[in-house]
Design a protein around this nucleic acid. Structure first.
Lengths: 148, 148
DNA sequence: CCGATATACTTGCAATCGGAAATACTTCGG
DNA sequence: CCGAAGTATTTCCGATTGCAAGTATATCGG
């Protein structure tokens, strides 16, 4: 028999893989944005001044800083994000959410909410969904950048 | 305020990203296997006759069939898996877990269990871990290839 | 039996990612 | 003020992945 910890982690990885597979298609075709791009924009939307440095974004997205650099280039060309310097520290190059970006992330978020609701439709009482959200939230508690 | 479904899915993606990041290092340095390779071997270990076709593996791992082809090549050179033909259907090329593979996956699984236990150490009562495992399992219920 | 369709696997190609190295800037200790 | 160490960002390179195409085999309808 498996330990509960082992079952939980394996099921978690499985569920996440399925989710990404399922969300990528719809999100890309409807909004032209990848799931990871939407998550990036959502982090910006939650940040003070709607901006974050690239290393902060990297930590929140669990990707390398170089990936953030490459991800923000197309988003900048789309007008979703801008670049802003810090007057105190010239090394920093903030990624700022533009008004266009706010609009796009709002739309994509609505789609995400619908897809998320579909996942639990039928068979799931509201209380259990809340319990799941709470337990998963506790798994990443203490890290900066909670989106939930 | 976010809907519970939305919070659950976003937290799920976040937690999974963190898990993969955390497990990859230890698993790779100790056993020389990537997390995805260990999952592949675990699926084989659970299958009848310890073997699966490449498309079945692809569905269970949520990757493309070509990825399975490329993943099994190094594992075959390591002696962890073998190749077996089906006498009824010459298209099939089963991936079979060898005895070496059984040994390796057993060791890697032990490491995985330890890492999983570390994740929940302290702050988590046993009952909540079991609840989390159950809820996550329900998210992928109905699909073939449950590892938990 | 035979052609049409479907399935399993492999390979070529383009896109993506992480780590190392390079650059620029800041901070700290004298 | 000056050099050493640390941090932020970008670019280069190797590795990995999915998709489309190609090959081989199976199945189904006539």
């Amino acid at each position: 028999m498996n330990t509960p910890s082992f079952s939980a982690t394996v099921n978690l990885l499985r569920a996440a893989a399925r989710l990404e597979e399922r969300f990528a298609g719809e999100l890309g075709s409807v909004h032209g944005l990848a799931l990871k791009e939407v998550l990036l924009l959502m982090h910006l939307d939650r940040a003070p001044l709607r901006r974050l440095s690239r290393v902060d974004l990297a930590k929140r997205l669990h990707v390398s800083p170089s990936t953030v650099t490459r991800m923000t280039n197309p988003l900048e060309k789309l007008g979703c994000v801008g670049r802003e310097a810090d007057p105190r520290d010239a090394r920093l190059a903030y990624v700022v959410l533009t008004e266009t970006g706010q609009k796009r992330v709002g739309e994509a978020r609505a789609t995400l909410e619908r897809l998320a609701a579909d996942l639990f439709r039928d068979r799931w009482p509201r209380s259990e969904i809340a319990t799941l959200a709470d337990l998963l939230g506790r798994l990443t508690a203490g890290q900066p950048g909670d989106l939930a």
